[in-house]
Design a protein around this nucleic acid. Structure first.
Lengths: 208, 208
DNA sequence: AGAGATATAGGTAGAACTACCTATTGCCGT
DNA sequence: ACGGCAATAGGTAGTTCTACCTATATCTCT
């Protein structure tokens, strides 16, 4: 039984300043948001796994890895949380760089509490949508995993518009065998027409 | 015969300061980029039609409509040029607002000439790619325009995975008539299998 | 050794699709 | 009023797909 908060949307707060962390945590808890605070980029990376849903509040100026470095590295860690950058000494080039690297927002301290909450809620909504799509993809993916190598091969050729006869020639097997594979594909992917098969395949192509 | 430069990628420069315009134009012409300068948002909107390819250099502080207002209004004019904001007195919130509204970059004056050129070239590449895709879509779109209302109706149902019999029932016509429509659809769209039809339809769905 | 998965292939029958043909009705524009 | 287009529908033939059945060879895991 999963009784902890691992599965809940989480506001991750990464800031080396303990007073700032406490102040933000107090703000978040006052509106019933679940939050976790970390004193540095390293501690966060160790604790956060890519499955988590939520958003990330990131201070720029920190000992060790800076917020900007962490932001630019998140992608290669597979973490795609929306990131809100918080900074006391930000300038325009830094803000531009952050947003070009995909930051959700860039706010200067001292920040307006309501504005921060608004942005956090927007970020949480965005990530909730991202996770919804991710889960859909996951279901599809699981179905495709059930295909054998040969079946996957045949499926690609079917989606590309080949007839069973053409597929048989390309793979050097009987069109009859291709039909067997096709039947297995349709059953495993739970589709009943070519159109559904193509749509399902393209949905997976588009999002991964 | 189209002998003017309407079809060439164009760097549109919008700035109320004549010295600034001349300075930027000189920089652009020194690297053989074609540019057009405008003294205000209104003059630009009047001269630029949505078909043009290129990018837009936009000053923030101008009499009349500001650069930010123009940026936020471009979408509703159907103009999707990448926009590089140039400003002498920008601050962080303004930069954030510009980038969140889709600006390609936000640079502060006085700017480094090489940096500006780099960003312009990146913007031009992006818009060239956008136009390439747009042209592809346009060809597809032209084919779909050739369909009659009834044929379009039938096509959607085919793509959704309905059989001719099912379509006939839904539309209250004979499955035989549906077959006629299907044949016309396949001929007009120049596809030869259901899979191709669905792929073509979804390509259009995704990009428009 | 036996169970299960995988790939192979044949048969048969019915449903669905495709490509031809003709034909009628109604509407629009010259 | 005539020609052309759109929508309707039928016939026939051939191809393709789908759903059943059986069957063999190979490989893996227990």
């Amino acid at each position: 039984m999963m009784s902890n908060n691992t599965m809940r949307p989480t506001v991750f707060v990464v800031d080396d300043d303990e007073d700032m962390r406490d102040s933000i945590l107090w703000l978040l808890e006052s509106v019933n948001l679940y939050a976790e605070a970390y004193a540095g980029a390293g501690a966060f990376l160790q604790a956060c796994d890519p499955q988590r849903e939520g958003c990330l509040l990131l201070d720029v100026r920190m000992p060790g890895m800076s917020g900007m470095e962490l932001l630019e590295q998140l992608g290669s860690c597979g973490i795609h949380l929306p990131v809100i950058i918080l900074t006391g000494h930000g300038d325009v080039p830094m803000a531009v760089r952050a947003l070009k690297h995909g930051a959700f927002d860039f706010l200067q301290k001292p920040f307006n509490g309501q504005e921060l909450l608004d942005q956090i809620n927007a970020a949480l909504r965005q990530d909730a949508e991202r996770h919804r799509q991710r889960r859909e993809m996951h279901v599809l993916h699981a179905h495709y995993e059930a295909l054998t190598h040969r079946e996957a091969e045949v499926m690609e050729l079917v989606v590309a518009g080949n007839s069973s006869k053409a597929i048989g020639q390309k793979l050097g097997i009987s069109p009859k065998t291709v039909d067997i594979h096709r039947a297995n594909i349709m059953r495993k992917l739970d589709v009943h027409t070519i159109a559904e098969l193509v749509q399902s395949r393209l949905a997976l192509r588009g999002e991964e």
